[in-house]
């Protein structure tokens, strides 16, 4: 599972660089996401614009990330394709995440939120 992490204005942008996040990759995905959080990143934009398909284990990994940032942190999602967004709707996960169309919008929202 390839991911890329880039800091922008105090926000960690985590880019998932796979077309599919499913059972074969979700364990690694979750580990890398949690590692990034453990390293002190509490304001995270998870960019999934490259992801065309995500299954329930992939969604589970993202929820683990949300839980790990805790109440004082923030994890938002950007760039979800229609397929992935439909999976968020199916699980009602769209109601616990802020979802932005683009990475820039998401970063902007988190930095603005910072004051």
């Amino acid at each position: 599972m390839q991911i890329e992490i880039e800091k922008q204005d105090g926000v960690a942008v985590v880019r998932a660089l796979e077309k599919r996040i499913d059972a074969s990759l979700s364990g690694e995905f979750k580990a890398k996401l949690l590692e990034a959080i453990r390293e002190g990143n509490k304001r995270i934009v998870l960019d999934i614009s490259m992801v065309e398909f995500i299954d329930s284990s992939g969604l589970g990994a993202i929820i683990s990330g949300l839980k790990a940032v805790g109440e004082d942190g923030k994890l938002v999602v950007s760039g979800s394709t229609e397929n992935v967004r439909s999976m968020f709707r199916l699980t009602r996960m769209d109601r616990i995440f802020s979802i932005y169309d683009t990475e820039q919008e998401a970063v902007h929202a988190l930095t603005a939120d910072n004051g």
Binding site: D55, S56, S57, L59, G60, I63, L90, T91, R92, M93, R95, I96, F97, S98
Partner: peptide, 26 residues
């Protein structure tokens, strides 16, 4: 089509009850 899985009893961004259907198979 998802089947199986479990419900995670969560809250949405507004604090309302938000049951999430997770861990399904396709």
């Amino acid at each position: 089509i998802p089947i199986y899985g479990r419900i995670e009893h969560a809250q949405d961004v507004n604090g309302a009850y938000n049951p999430m259907w997770l861990d399904w198979q396709l």
